[in-house]
């Protein structure tokens, strides 16, 4: 006899159907774009993720926001050659120059690594249940903010200016009813899509709540 209804199966998969529906409505499908700055339904997990929770969006600042420090690193890499070319250190023994150059390049490597780590691991995650903002403010300080999608007000976005318009990135602000009034994703790609997905997810959850599911 065919199984007409499986309560366990329905309960287990409800959020997947919800996410499928929302992504279909906004014309998105699982993908990784902008060097990992805009990931739709990535097959990844984050700390404190629950069993019935799935990442819908994983966002980082647009890669172009790294341009400043990348240019600085390039400048730091060519600087020793330029300075030594002027002959300023002609009186310094060669072994000191060699060690000095190696120290300089190591510091440059460390700076580049640190900036990359801040960019790569400061993420804004939208799941089927909540928003998670993970920020690394310095090497020792991590801030994680959560906001349940049932407790958010209407999300908003801010974009503008030549660079932001050209590369299509901006800031997303979500007002919450908690102690921390806003949760924000700064410089993320396609902020209008982010706002759209958050709004639709919150709406669908609200409908489920009204239906008593």
């Amino acid at each position: 006899m065919p199984e007409v209804y499986s309560a366990q199966g329905t309960k287990k998969e409800w959020w997947k159907e919800l996410v499928d529906g929302v992504l279909e409505k906004v014309g998105e499908e699982p993908r990784r774009a902008m060097l990992g700055a805009f990931c739709v339904r990535p097959d990844q997990r984050f700390m404190t993720q629950q069993e019935d929770e799935e990442i819908v969006l994983l966002l980082r600042a647009h890669p172009i926001t790294n341009l400043g420090w990348v240019l600085l690193v390039i400048l730091m890499l060519v600087l020793p050659g330029v300075i030594l070319g002027t002959g300023v250190f002609a009186a310094v023994p060669g072994k000191f120059v060699l060690v000095g150059k190696l120290v300089w390049y190591l510091v440059t490597l460390m700076y580049a690594m640190e900036r990359f780590l801040y960019w790569y691991y400061s993420v804004f995650i939208v799941t089927n249940e909540r928003l998670v903002d993970i920020d690394f403010e310095n090497l020792m300080f991590r801030v994680i903010t959560y906001a349940n999608l049932n407790h958010i007000e209407e999300p908003a976005m801010v974009t503008g200016g030549f660079i932001r318009s050209m590369f299509q990135y901006g800031d997303v602000f979500v007002t919450t009813a908690s102690e921390k009034p806003t949760i924000e994703a700064l410089g993320v790609p396609w902020p209008h899509k982010v706002v759209d997905i958050i709004s639709r997810l919150a709406e669908e959850l609200e409908k489920r709540r009204e239906r008593g599911e």
Partner: peptide, 10 residues
């Protein structure tokens, strides 16, 4: 720090 960061997101 890298250990802490990599624990945050798989």
């Amino acid at each position: 720090q890298v250990k802490i960061m990599t624990e945050a997101v798989e």
